[in-house]
């Protein structure tokens, strides 16, 4: 994600995180300004054009992004310390990466199967639970969710081959 500054267990320093984020925000603001300017940010025949309000919003983003970037550059990196330590980053990734995989799998298996697999994998991997215990949590939770949404509230959620087998 960001470049690694290895100093005393810190994976990413607070200073570089501040700078990178502020620059991304500035760029975001610039894109907003550019696109708003494209569709017209002036005064049309029927009042302010579509792009005028977002244009100034973008301008304010760029200004605050630049100010934040400058003050981040001027800050003392030792005083700021770390954005995340290695161990913390590992823990965060241990949640984030499975979550991303989980969300990606929903498209193929439907939400209930993906959720069950996600809970089982997470419990076994992070919580060191046995496979049986994990299944005993994941399956009832998802069966409950299935009945709650599909049957009681009749709100259809993404379903896959397994649900199709049961005729849903």
């Amino acid at each position: 994600m960001q470049d690694n500054h290895n100093n005393e267990g810190g994976a990413i320093s607070q200073k570089s995180a501040e700078i990178v984020t502020a620059i991304i925000i500035t760029l975001f603001g610039a894109i907003v300004m550019w696109d708003s300017n494209r569709i017209g940010a002036g005064w049309g025949s029927d009042g302010p054009e579509s792009g005028s309000f977002p244009f100034y919003v973008g301008l304010l983003i760029v200004i605050s992004g630049i100010v934040t970037t400058i003050s981040a550059f001027r800050a003392d990196s030792k005083e700021l310390g770390d954005f995340v330590e290695h161990e913390q980053l590992r823990m965060v990734m241990a949640v984030l990466i499975p979550s991303i995989v989980y969300v990606a799998v929903i498209g193929f298996t439907g939400i209930y199967v993906a959720s069950a697999i996600f809970i089982i994998a997470f419990m076994m991997w992070q919580g060191k639970f046995s496979a049986i215990k994990s299944i005993l949590v994941a399956v009832p939770v998802n069966v409950f969710l299935f009945f709650m949404f599909e049957v009681w509230f009749t709100i259809p959620l993404p379903k896959g081959p397994l649900e199709a087998m049961f005729g849903y």
Binding site: S50, I61, I63
Partner: peptide, 27 residues
């Protein structure tokens, strides 16, 4: 300035999609 940045990002995201007044697509 961080408060302003966060707030304006919110406004920019709110502007995405169809402009309710002119019907033009934005961002």
């Amino acid at each position: 300035f961080k408060t302003i940045a966060a707030m304006m990002i919110g406004f920019a995201l709110a502007a995405v999609g169809m402009d309710t007044i002119t019907g033009q697509l934005r961002l």
